[in-house]
Simulated assay, not measured.
Amino acid sequence: MSAPVSAGVIPELFRGLFDDAAVFPPGNLPVAEAVPAHRVHRAAWYAEAVGPFLCGAGRLGELAAAPPASGAVGGATAGGAEEAGAAPLRVGLVLPGGSAELAPALAAAAPFELAGVELATKDAAEAVAELDRLLPPHVPAAVELPRELLRGDGLDAVLDVLVDSPYRAKFRTGGLVAEAFPDEDELAAFLTGCAQRGLPYKCTAGLHNAVRHTDPETGFEHHGFLNVLLAAQETDRAAAAAVLAERDGEVLAKAVRALTDRQVTVIRNSFTAFGTCSIAEPLGDLATLGLLSSPDPLPQEDR
């Protein structure tokens, strides 16, 4: 990252980092609008930064009815099987209802290119068993446990289950109420617990800005995705918490520029992606901090 940022080039640190969660709160973009917007992102110069389109199990019917890609000859079938060489829609399947949703959701997602599954559960071992039983071997998955089960000894127990599996952990870093946002120490415990085990993870909610800040409208304390990226290389909980607490964007940008290729690899092998209801905001923040150079205008706000 120490080399100058070339226009139109997505640095390795940010490739595939932003999963498109436009249809989830607080964005709540209608599926019929979110799918064309996602296709624009996937065709843009910054496409390497954009991950799959995230969709809840209950909205796969809407997704199947979404408009085909523009220029597809003869239309499309079920929103995912585009014709005329159009890229199929890569879908990350989000299952908030637990393992009972897995089999029917996998069947409903058959028309799409399944990029991954995110399974919320209260029982990590049961979720791993169901994923082993039902998930196609080429499809990655992440397992999310309620935060109240990840405190104290519960965190170690869950991470130990996942580290013996092929699946990532998933951690919720925000939401629609203040209590949905973990503080620095709680998030640091998760990050370092994963780092100590070599367990990859993704995050979701509240991370669409680069730098830790207090939202002026809600008063909620938001973590910054740059903070999380830099903290991902730490195995010491206090050190990780200190990085998560940093509010100076220039300090974080300087630290990012100083990363070696090896550090970038370690970070991204740990922190694989996060869901964001806006693709525009994180890109805009990176450009403002001089960590991304745009050859064309960045996308307008897509929430």
Rank of each mutant, 00 (worst) to 15 (best):
A129T: 11
L191V: 15
E82Y: 01
L162M: 10
A240D: 05
A43W: 05
G219Q: 09
T288A: 15
A43Y: 07
R168M: 15
G198V: 00
A32L: 10
R39I: 11
A100K: 15
A287Q: 12
P88M: 07
P104Y: 07
A22S: 15
H223R: 08
Y46M: 08
F220D: 00
A242P: 05
D20F: 15
F271T: 01
D285C: 13
D132E: 14
L119G: 01
A107P: 04
G224C: 11
E184F: 03
F225L: 09
Q233K: 13
A22W: 04
L106P: 05
A115Q: 04
Q196Y: 06
A169C: 09
G97C: 05
P297L: 12
A7H: 09
L93A: 08
G174L: 04
A109N: 08
V161I: 13
A37E: 11
I267G: 09
A287H: 08
A195W: 06
R133V: 04
L13N: 03
G16M: 10
N28T: 13
F271G: 05
A253K: 09
D123E: 14
N269C: 09
A110R: 15
T173G: 14
A69E: 14
G74I: 01
A57M: 05
L135R: 12
T204K: 07
D261I: 06
A124M: 07
A240N: 06
E82R: 03
L162R: 01
L155A: 12
L17E: 11
G152Y: 13
F225W: 04
V31L: 11
T204W: 02
L252T: 00
R212N: 11
A69V: 11
P36C: 08
V143Q: 04
K170L: 15
G206R: 02
D19I: 06
A72P: 04
E113K: 10
G116V: 01
E118D: 14
F274H: 01
A273R: 03
D19V: 13
G284Y: 00
E234P: 02
P67V: 03
V91L: 11
L207R: 00
G16Y: 05
A115E: 07
A64Q: 15
L135T: 00
D160W: 03
S6W: 11
T121G: 11
T235L: 08
T214R: 13
G58A: 13
D215L: 10
L286Q: 00
S278W: 06
L131H: 02
D183M: 05
